[in-house]
Design a protein around this nucleic acid. Sequence first.
RNA 1: GGGCGAUUGACUCAGUUGGUUCAGAGUGCCUCCCUUACAAGGAGGAAGUCACUGGUUCGAAUCCAGUAUCGCCCACCA
Length: 895
Amino acid sequence: MGTVEIEKIYNSKAIEEKWLKFWEENGFGHAVAGTGKNPYSIVIPPPNITAVLHLGHALNNTIQDILIRFKRMQGYESEWMPGTDHAGIATQNVVERKISRETGKTRQDVGREDFIREVWKFREETGGTIIEQLKRMGCSCDWKRERFTMDEGLSRAVTEVFVRLYEKGLIYRGKYIINWCPRCQTALSDEEAEHEEQSGHLWYLRYPAADGSEGVVVATTRPETMLGDVAVAVNPADQRYKGLVGKKLILPLVGKEIPVIADDFVDPAFGTGAVKVTPAHDPNDFEIGLRHHLEPVIVMNGDGTMSAHAGAEFEGLTREAARKKVVEKLTGLGNLVKIEDHLHAVGHCYRCHTITEPYLSSQWFVRMKTLAEPAIDAVKDGRITFYPERWTKVYLGWMENIRDWCISRQLWWGHRIPVYYCNVCGEVMVSRTPVTECTKCGSADIVQDPDVLDTWFSSWLWPFSTFGWPDTTPELRTFYPTSTLSTAPEIIFFWVARMIMAGIEFMGDIPFSKVYLHGTVRDEQGRKMSKSLGNGVDPLEVIETHGADALRFSMIIITAQGQDVFISYAGKNGKKQEHNTFDTGRNFANKIWNASRLILTLSGGSIGRADSVKKDLADRWIVSRFNREKSSITQMLENFKFNEAAQTLYHFIWHDFCDWYLEIIKPRIARGGDEKTFVLRNAAEILAGSMQLLHPIMPFVTEEIWQLLNEHLGEKQSASIMISKWPEADTGLIDPEIEREMEMVQSLITTIRTIRNEMNVPLGEKADVMVAPADEDARRVLDANSSYIMDLASVKHLAFTEQSKRPPKSAAGISDKNEVFVLLEGLVDFDRERVRLSKEIERRGKFIASIENKLSNENFLSKAPVEIIEQERRKANDTREEMKKLIANLESLGE
RNA sequence: GGGCGAUUGACUCAGUUGGUUCAGAGUGCCUCCCUUACAAGGAGGAAGUCACUGGUUCGAAUCCAGUAUCGCCCACCA
């Protein structure tokens, strides 16, 4: 029969499950290469396999899903390539800790091969967690193409790239100072060492001269490195030290002679103007050492303890202990002159936060300058655009000062460096395939370089390695270059910039044309959400409590282009909070749910056609408004104004559609017949169309309602809203005149409601109202739509009267120069009415004064455009007219 | 030491090219309403000299300069 039973509250859980299954089974996210349709593609910033979904992922992937769903509906062959990153250091650390926890063994105990096997096992077991979580959010990736940076194909691409760059002379091996993490025991790139301001000390140390004279005082922040000093440098122009250059000093504690040298690097104004030179443990000192042919002395081991070169007394001490001991001993010897407080930047490992060590070692590097140049051009000439635009400068600044990239890591988990050494003749062989025989001496005694490559050395190939490069696959031809990259600004250097370089170098074309950089997700105190702070909100919990649509919508509506996002959420078991970010989306989903419930319930199973019914003002108004929003939302999504699109839809659906249109059609539905059929159909069509516009942001509830509505309408144009055709605006249906008339009616209704409220006449009681229209046109419009006024303002009798003829026992108001009189039964509180009217008059008086002020300004009259002046005049006149009427009404109260 | 953001009602934030619709929204607050879609709701209301100072302009939340506070990024000065 015709009854439709629908739950009163939107049940996100059941509905999300249903459609997830449906989408997955039908593979709507899958895109096919070479169909000839216009392609649109996005590659996901691959989350680490160790990652669990946090709000940053939630935000970024919602943005990508919005774009991909939008474009898919617009008819593009839309590919969203998903996948994960092997995350060398992070994953190795996690698995090491796991093994240590479970068996007490170190990775060395386990051995390289078995350890790697363990990592793969970890990846099989938990590496897909985040992918499952992305699915729960509704991400419509092309799951059939999911990739992993350690896949065979991607590994092949990595090797290929290494070999090509090596052959081109862009990869080299050398002994340089790099950032070293003593805990992870690997080299890091400059970007992986995060510098933080820390308060430390500046120690002033006296190095006596070999000839027994006073010598020199140097200042250092790291006294323990003095054990590896090989010289003291001063500025050649520094008069204070003129006579000392070339002389010998005695290095305290070590007892060896070191020279005083002159180097421009030294700033005479800092410290004492004399700097100790430790080439093995400071990048600047290393440069000085090279210039002066000084042999570096490495006094530290890879684990951060002191080496044998530090001397028997210090060997084996941690760097912290060594520092203490050096200071103590120097104090004892009287060589410590003074200690000052000093603020300086200290590098930390971006994975484990241990203080990094500038460390001299042999590493592999990529020469970046030549790769950077075309990548700079691509941004400068506008082939690639950043949104928001301000990141362009950040990108260019880094690229223009780019330094060589240290790509070797002393880890086990990652892509092994494809370099082989002959143990017999020392030949170095770089090869795409494993080398078993020396190409020079024929020996079979070959070892592969033990190091692996930086994780980012595979990520920078992601936009094309995932589509099959180095083979020219149909996918690569179709989907490369990709369209948009959406990511966090933190990884511009790590990833975005390098992808641009790699894309141009290996594909001969940019990897994407638009880069959207979203803001950082923070808590209500502005702190970045992080595991260590424990202030993270678990998106899955939000999905549990509020639903995935609510999670998505709530984040999107507060994300102004590239601005940071602040979240208030106490959690499932947390204390009640004044404001909960995710309520916005949940309430909205519920509102939509109930709007559809009204239509579906009243339609009783199906909605027929009644095309002959004459359209009302509201019918044409909602259609006009809807078509207007179609084009603005399309525009907003094209321009990454996601929050505006969300805001616009929220307002249209909630206020225009629900508050006005549905309220207007309720009595018409109650009347039944063809009119009922017609308005139900109109409402259902508008709502179904709104669902399409909203679908990219809230995929689940929109699918559910779109399906239900179409079923009732008997108009299922496609299997899923996901693949339905994006609503195009019919500009012919946008009618400003209709909108103007409707606004007049709305304004009148609001005025009546306000008067009633202020005069304590609840909407529950019907009231008699008289209207004095401003002119013939107003009379026509209000007369034609008097039923709206009666229904929505709860009016018993509506009559028209002349202007300024206030009926006795009534309260007056004005809207668009139309006068309204609400007849009050019983005694009218004249004082109350007097106060009300006076306030209205006062408000208008001030407004008129401000306009007149403008209009009496000669400069304004002579310089402002005529339209503006006319506009101001009209405003003044209209308001004056309204005021006159209000005054008349006030006066009529006198008797 | 550079660079970049932010500063708008009690709270959290919008505000594209300076001028009706620009002083907005949501939350909170106050009043009324459990009206047959929704109390996770409806109707109405109070509340802001748009951080400060100066400038450009007929006209500035919006453009320019400077100041303050907060936050972020970058930087080899020991």
